Computed example of a mutant assay.
Amino acid sequence: MVLHLPICILCIFTLQLFTDGITNKLIGCYVGDAMDDVVLVRIYGNKTELLVDRDEEVKSFRVLQAHGCAPQLYCTFSNGLCYEFMQGEALDPEHVCNPDIFRLIARQLAKIHAIHAHNGWIPKSNLWLKMGKYFSLIPTEFTDEEVNNRFLSDVPSPQILQEEMAWMKERLSNLGSPVVLCHNDLLCKNIIYNEKRGDVQFIDYEYSGYNYLAYDIGNHFNEFAGVSEVDYSLYPDRELQDQWLRSYLEAYKEYKGFGTDVTEKEVEILYVQVNQFALASHFFWGLWALIQAKYSTIDFDFLGYAIVRFNQYFKMKPEVTALKLPE
């Protein structure tokens, strides 16, 4: 007879708090000293259920995972979720303008956009619905007098915001941009570059869902400016955009089975659509930041961020609305 005795192995878990996020708290859990097999636990930020449809997030996460575009989702719980850690480097603004890297980003985004909707269902964008919901949640005042004065003097009035939303919906909905599965929050830190494998992966799918293809790209271009210290001089110029958009269209056509030939007209059409939808991105995150300024417990100047986004919206509007789609 062989007697099997239980063996106790003492495992030392290491917890590492990641500090880049301004919506949630993210904790990496791993055994020992080496970050070889890391599990990420994301704890949702205060009142973020006002901003994020958590059921929709999980649905998108699973669809993306099934198509090899997202890490493994291990479990969800009432105020967070747990998923696989992607090995690599979270990017900064100086990385995303590197041609070797931005071509990988363009290709990966095209792969997501090319995912077919289930059972022939024709998707619709919920951008305007979400924007309207955010508008209904923005604060009317702040208890801190100094903050409130800043809010009243530097943020456009509700009437102006409402007029701009109506204008955008009318203008942008008629640009002909397809509605596809989008990431919707492709800031630099949500892109993981693995130099050894020569690829990129995207993380954080809180805002993912069906939206205008051009919005997703325009939003990413806005994020070239960074988050903590925003610098819109880093917004990609025409030459970089032409290269990026051509790489994207070649990959998108390939994934859709249409070959890889891309015309100058196709690049020009996408250029106009992307730069006009970049306006909607500024507006969306401006509203988002006002709500966060009221509820978030994270140490970040959300009001200042909202002011920056709205200012850039109004600065950019005349220039991009002058762009015309080619005949």
Score class of each variant (00 low, 15 high):
H4A: 14
I7Q: 14
T23N: 05
N24L: 02
K25F: 13
C29G: 05
Y30W: 05
A34I: 15
L40A: 01
Y44A: 06
L51A: 02
L51F: 02
V52I: 11
D55S: 12
C69L: 09
C69V: 03
Q72Y: 15
Q72V: 15
Q72W: 15
F85S: 03
G88R: 05
G88Q: 09
H95D: 15
C97S: 13
D100W: 10
L104W: 04
A106H: 07
L109S: 07
I112F: 08
H113Q: 01
H113N: 01
W121S: 15
W128V: 02
L129C: 15
Y134R: 05
T140W: 08
T143E: 14
D144Q: 11
V147E: 12
N148T: 05
S153T: 14
D154A: 13
E163G: 02
G176V: 13
S177C: 08
S177Y: 04
C182D: 02
H183W: 02
K196M: 14
I203D: 00
D204L: 06
Y205I: 08
L213K: 08
N219K: 02
N219H: 03
V227Q: 07
V227P: 01
D237G: 11
Q243N: 14
W244C: 04
Y252E: 05
Y252H: 09
K253H: 13
T263I: 09
E264I: 08
V272F: 12
S281I: 00
L290C: 04
L290R: 00
A293W: 03
V308N: 07
V320Q: 04
L323A: 02
